[in-house]
């Protein structure tokens, strides 16, 4: 089955479109292909921190949402809310690495879903983790979240902050705080 080019269904554009192609999509799972290229964001000295896996995961989930809603009204908003149990088998990816990004929905309720994700290079598993994503307007989610009535809101959370700890030997992902839009605003 042929899938549409990602730039037809995602609002992401190079250089921030990190994925090359959608290679498989089902109702609750997606696989995308990506190659690490010189000059791509966060690549330095021929390599990039394996923490970039998180952005690959987020973009693959965005690709699944976009693919499933193709033909519908334009891009939708979304948010990467957090990551859990991110495990990196390598510290860096190398320029020229061809990667498969696989994400499978393991839970969803309303606009919120959690995907179990795997980044692999051939048979080698490079990174695994779960990403929690919001499809829809973040303001609406904040109003509907369990914490909203407790005087808390999304801005008090620090999703992704634990990912940057213990990686002082790796290039930081440019101070990003894990709140990236997995699917940017229109």
């Amino acid at each position: 089955m042929a899938f549409p080019p990602l730039d037809e269904i995602l609002p992401h554009r190079p250089p921030m479109l990190l994925l090359d192609a959608l290679t498989a999509a089902e109702a609750e799972s997606v696989t995308c292909r990506a190659m690490v290229r010189a000059g791509a964001p966060f690549v330095a000295g021929g390599r990039v921190s394996a923490l970039i896996a998180l952005e690959y995961f987020a973009q693959a989930v965005a690709a699944l949402f976009a693919y499933k809603s193709r033909g519908g009204p334009g891009p939708f908003r979304g948010l990467l809310l957090g990551a859990r149990d991110l495990e990196l088998a390598v510290s860096h990816l190398r320029v020229g690495d061809v990667l498969d990004v696989h994400c499978r929905e393991q839970w969803a309720s309303g606009p919120v879903a959690q995907f179990q994700c795997i980044l692999s290079r051939g048979d080698e598993r490079l990174a695994t983790g779960a990403v929690t994503v919001l499809r829809g307007d973040p303001a609406e989610f904040a109003a509907a979240s369990p914490a909203a009535g407790a005087g808390s809101d999304l801005s008090s959370g620090t999703p992704g902050s634990d990912l940057s700890s213990g990686t002082s030997s790796s290039p930081r992902l440019d101070g990003r705080d894990g709140r990236d839009h997995s699917e940017p605003a229109p």
């Binding site: 809310l81 957090g82 393991q106 839970w107 914490a147 999703p159």
Partner: peptide
């Protein structure tokens, strides 16, 4: 209380509901 006493936030709550699933 989850938020006041145990210091969970709304993202934690989602993780908890995934586990409850």
């Amino acid at each position: 209380r989850l938020f006041e006493d145990l210091d969970l936030d709304s993202i934690d709550a989602i993780d908890m509901f995934v586990e409850l699933h």
